[in-house]
Design a protein around this nucleic acid. Structure first.
Lengths: 109, 109
DNA sequence: CTAGCTATGTATAAAAA
DNA sequence: TTTTTTATACATAGCTA
């Protein structure tokens, strides 16, 4: 990109990696925004830094809507099955599942 | 970006919009890939064209893992409530409630 | 729609603040 | 870490095929 071509591999120098992360993250979110506006597309971006900090963009008012739509679009048989399995596994390892279920169903009727 | 600066608003000409979408979408996914590699970050991108076609990228082998992580990071009280409401709305208009319930539970853990 | 072609507009690496 | 500067590398709008 500038003053030197970049090799496509993890930047070893921690400081450089951090600076690059900051700049490119900003650039990525900006590009996502531009794509959504120029092309009237629905775009969602999720980024986690190495330290676990979250950065995200969503053309939708609620990124959850795009995520849900993704699920619906990507749910061919295999994907569905895989997701199901994941969900079931996730549930099995959670003790407060029943409480959550009740809370949820309650608000449903 | 070339031969003329672009106004940040929906491209009216359908053909131009389509071509731009194709080019920028590719560019966005590439940038996402580069960010993930260079900075060792976890990145997920979801894009829907106007026609509803899905394009996505995930630095993780399964984008679902990044989405889950997002939920965990973003679940302050308000966000939780908003998600709940959205899921409920989604469910009301969907007959496969069982599947939706499972998917929803995943967001807790 | 997909694929070059270039002139230009942008993004950004490196260095320094 | 974030920002600024500046030289370069990249991305891409408008065309063409």
């Amino acid at each position: 990109m500038a003053r030197g071509k970049v090799q496509l591999r993890r930047i070893e120098n921690a400081t450089s990696r951090q600076v690059t992360f900051s700049k490119r993250r900003t650039g990525l979110l900006k590009k996502a925004y531009e794509l959504s506006v120029l092309c009237d597309a629905e775009v969602a971006v999720i980024v986690f830094s190495q330290k676990g900090r979250l950065y995200n963009f969503s053309s939708n008012s609620e990124i959850q809507m795009t995520i849900d739509r993704y699920r619906r679009s990507a749910n061919d048989a295999d994907k569905y099955r895989a997701d199901m399995e994941q969900h079931i596994l996730a549930m099995r390892s959670n003790k407060s599942i029943f409480i959550q279920v009740l809370m949820f169903l309650q608000s449903f009727e």
